[in-house]
């Protein structure tokens, strides 16, 4: 279960609204490499993970992604607060506004709604961890792209924090993959799927007990 802690992981205090930038940053809420997808990817994959270290890592990183989603939503919320109708129209935010007013709704910057197809939960530890490492790099690239567009330091600082977390998570998933390979047949990591095959030991796999 989860407990809510009433603070952001890193402070967000934006003094100048900017609806144009909000439309870009919202991609890290509901876009293909966003925090919602990240959290649901890891928190879905963890149940069938055969190794405790990996299940623990997915739980804890998945939990941190929920805190990142809250930070992104706080950024978008503060960037779109107190907008005038003129600002809404001039910034191109009117297309979002007509459906959601100023509420938060998970979509990509291009307006595409959040879709669970942007991530996988495959039930194969090597497949999933390889996806997780790629996901962290894709999110890092997105934050790099955002940082090229944003000039306001109030927005840059929390985005830089989130970018750095992608790199740490990539490192931890890399260690998870190494731990997994240590437990498999070194001659052929794919000889069995330890999340599914029950006869792994006879197939040359060392099972984690």
């Amino acid at each position: 279960m989860w407990n809510y802690e009433k603070r952001l992981q890193f402070p967000v205090n934006i003094k100048t609204p900017n609806a144009k930038i909000a439309q870009v940053i919202i991609s890290q809420f509901g876009g293909p490499d966003g925090e919602l997808a990240a959290s649901q990817r890891y928190l879905s994959q963890r149940y069938t993970m055969p190794y405790r270290e990996v299940a623990g890592c997915l739980t804890d990183i998945g939990t941190e992604e929920l805190a990142h989603m809250e930070m992104i939503c706080a950024i978008v919320y503060q960037l779109t607060k107190d907008l005038s109708m003129e600002e809404i129209q001039a910034s191109g935010f009117d297309k979002y506004y007509v459906d959601h007013t100023l509420a938060l709704w998970p979509q990509a910057a291009g307006g595409i709604p959040f879709n669970a197809c942007v991530f996988q939960s495959k039930g194969d530890v090597i497949t999933d961890l390889t996806e997780d490492m790629a996901a962290e790099q894709k999110a890092r690239s997105t934050y790099d792209n955002i940082l090229r567009l944003v000039k306001d330091p109030d927005v840059c600082e929390p985005i830089k924090f989130l970018r750095a977390r992608e790199i740490v998570h990539f490192q931890r998933f890399g260690e998870c993959l190494r731990l997994t390979q240590d437990k498999l047949d070194a001659k052929n990591f794919y000889v069995c799927n330890p999340e599914f095959d029950t006869n792994c030991p006879t197939m040359g796999c060392k099972r984690d007990k």
């Binding site: 603070r7 992981q9 402070p11 270290e53 890592c57 804890d60 260690e175």
Partner: peptide
Amino acid sequence: MLHKINVISFICVEMQLYLDTHP
């Protein structure tokens, strides 16, 4: 005080993730 909580909490999150793969 909240800043200090954020900093110490960050250390705890970092160590938690590190220990998950180095128990």
